[in-house]
């Protein structure tokens, strides 16, 4: 399936992390593409951008943000959007993504991906803001399903319904994080496949996989360690619904060597094409 936005299949990529900068610049490993955390390259004029420029010369780049705060009731931060757009143009990023969440109100930034209530009011609010961001960027925004640890009593729909309606009504793209689906399914007791069944896969332009931490009573989306097989299998299931969608591994804590991280990402090949 080709996504409706015509965005390319970049293959299997890695989240770009500072501990790997030198290896990538010096060894020039064969990697399909890198995803950057956009916010790490804003408000800097120095070394992070120097490394990024070197890497962007050689590899396709996609931007993944954590501070857009698309669900916040604070006004959209136009300065942030301007910086985001400038960075996208600088590194020729194929697309820009962020999360279905909010990060703060009253000008504070908690730097956490806080959960949205799934209500009609919240949906209308986010749809309007996604449209405004897309107008500003002049390109589709991809929103990622978050991992969440609470559900609100006032919710009038489930997350998958909210996400599907948001994508249709705002005409935006989706970044499907299958680890987040797995985490939230465990935390809230829903069926991950039911979640996938409800998504408009023609709007999915990218998939994420990652490790997590199981506390027994709940799972935390820690991005630590290898991806467990049930998450790989969920990726296989999702990818079968949208073949040709690029896949990316996020590994953000206790990050191993570049080779080991890349080897883990390439495990996706074992699961792509698997049927439910």
């Amino acid at each position: 399936m080709k996504n409706r936005f015509g965005l390319p299949n970049l293959g299997i990529g890695l989240g770009l992390r500072t501990v790997h900068y030198s290896h990538i610049v010096e060894q020039k490993p064969a990697v399909d593409w890198f995803e950057i955390i956009s916010d790490n390259y804003l408000h800097t004029a120095g070394r992070p951008l120097d490394f990024l420029d070197l890497i962007a010369e050689r590899y396709p780049i996609v931007m993944h943000g954590v501070s857009l705060s698309i669900g916040s009731t604070d006004p959209l931060d136009r300065d942030y959007l301007r910086e985001l757009r400038a960075l996208r143009d600088r590194v020729r990023a194929h697309w820009v993504s962020d999360h279905l969440c909010w990060t703060g109100v009253s000008s504070k930034n908690t730097h956490d991906l806080l959960p949205m209530p799934y209500t009609e009011e919240a949906l209308a609010h986010v749809v309007a803001r996604v449209r405004a961001v897309q107008d500003f960027l002049g390109a589709p925004l991809a929103l990622e399903n978050p991992s969440t640890y609470v559900e609100f009593a006032g919710d009038s729909m489930r997350e998958w319904e909210f996400l599907g309606r948001l994508a249709e009504e705002a005409d935006c793209a989706l970044l499907l994080d299958v680890n987040n689906v797995y985490v939230s399914a465990r935390n809230h007791g829903f069926d991950a496949l039911r979640y996938l069944d409800a998504l408009p896969f023609d709007r999915v332009v990218q998939m994420h996989v990652a490790g997590h931490t199981d506390h027994g009573t709940h799972i935390v989306d820690s991005h630590i360690g290898p991806v467990i097989d049930p998450v790989w299998k969920l990726l296989g299931n999702a990818h079968a619904r949208a073949p040709g969608i690029p896949i990316l591994l996020e590994w953000d804590a206790e990050i191993p060597s570049f080779e080991e991280t890349h080897h883990e990402a390439l495990r996706a090949r074992e699961f792509i094409g698997a049927t439910p």
Binding site: T18, I37, D39, N40, R47, P48, L113, V220, D252, A253
Partner: peptide, 17 residues
């Protein structure tokens, strides 16, 4: 050391002890 001051800001939730 090169790694100093180059913290990541990722979409991960810290593991809580």
């Amino acid at each position: 050391a090169d790694a100093i001051g180059t913290h990541e800001r990722a979409s991960a939730t810290p593991v809580h002890t």
